[in-house]
Design a protein around this nucleic acid. Sequence first.
DNA 1: AAGGTAATGGCACTCGGTGTCGATTGGAAG
DNA 2: CTTCCAATCGACACCGAGTGCCATTACCTT
Lengths: 199, 199
Amino acid sequence: MAESSNVAVRRGGRRRSTSRAALEHLAFELFDERGFEDTTIEDIAAAAGIGRRTFFRYFPSKNDVPWGSFDEQLDVMRARFAACPAEMPLLDAVREVVVDFNRVDQAEVPWLRRRMRFILTVPALQAHSTLRYADWRLVVAEFVGERLGEPADALRPQAIAHATLGVAIAAYQQWLADPTVELTQLLDTALRALSTGFA
Amino acid sequence: MAESSNVAVRRGGRRRSTSRAALEHLAFELFDERGFEDTTIEDIAAAAGIGRRTFFRYFPSKNDVPWGSFDEQLDVMRARFAACPAEMPLLDAVREVVVDFNRVDQAEVPWLRRRMRFILTVPALQAHSTLRYADWRLVVAEFVGERLGEPADALRPQAIAHATLGVAIAAYQQWLADPTVELTQLLDTALRALSTGFA
DNA sequence: AAGGTAATGGCACTCGGTGTCGATTGGAAG
DNA sequence: CTTCCAATCGACACCGAGTGCCATTACCTT
């Protein structure tokens, strides 16, 4: 397992001519200039000096560009759930992990904002996001299922995961609309409301 | 405004050669046979005896086929919210309307099940559903906003709308997995849990 | 019968996405 | 240095969804 690191072993072969991150940066510039829909894969590939076909070796689809390396992020979230003390009430744990998960470095805030602006406002990306959210929800549902002693696909874990995600998205939308409030603050407020049944 | 009825006035012109409902039925058969992805618009059009181009005059996209006339449904839901007694607690009202909205005729249950099976299991449809759900959420958020004296796009109305939708989807998924339970029962259970903060 | 109106459907086009395959580029072994 | 292998690249061809355009068809009204 010493080899399974993310550094990639490179036993030989041609070097990759760019990176996901570089393409993402580049694509974001174009999206800002012309808009997401009016930027073609060919535009991005040309700007990056690669072939259209090669673009699809870095991203499975155009819609995946704004998601960066979301899967690795989910591993982090999973780890935080695992590190949660068992005596912490269920929804408190969920809230803390979700809020903490979204506590990003000040320097990265503009990036996060831009990323989320795309995801939450471009229809094609709104739609695609559902597929990525499913993975996010699974992380929550597995934790909740574990705690409740139910399968992750049972009603309560699923309902809680769905509700948590929904509330988090609502908080994100508020954050986009009003940059002066802290994202973590909004998430905390909204998730607290959820855990009290919006009383 | 006497003309704005949905009966369509027909001052002349060629008759429509089919209907949304007929196309939907037909498409569902093909989807069941070959699967959603492996059924092309041309397949559906050919089966219906219309041109490919004409299909897009009945449905804006292939992904919209399983949604039938969802917009009219939303009008119904809006009306039910409007008819809610003002003294009924907020989340009770939401729950009752949502549950009632999903109380369908026994004869239509198989149809609803098939429809939802497509929407909730085919990735392209899962993704697309987000765009339709947005309209659904707006109906809820407008009602909640009205009640709370806040704009529909404020945090609480949005959070409640998102959470309600999420929980409803979780209930639907359970219903799909286990046909023996009543959908309305599942929705009621899940939404009650939501309104008590999943205590 | 004539004229207006709305639906139809063919055509051509764009774009996202995929399979194939030969061409490149590098590391490692001899 | 040469040879071999492995991974990446990128060109080409193809498919299907979706759209603009426009002539044609079918129907209703006068």
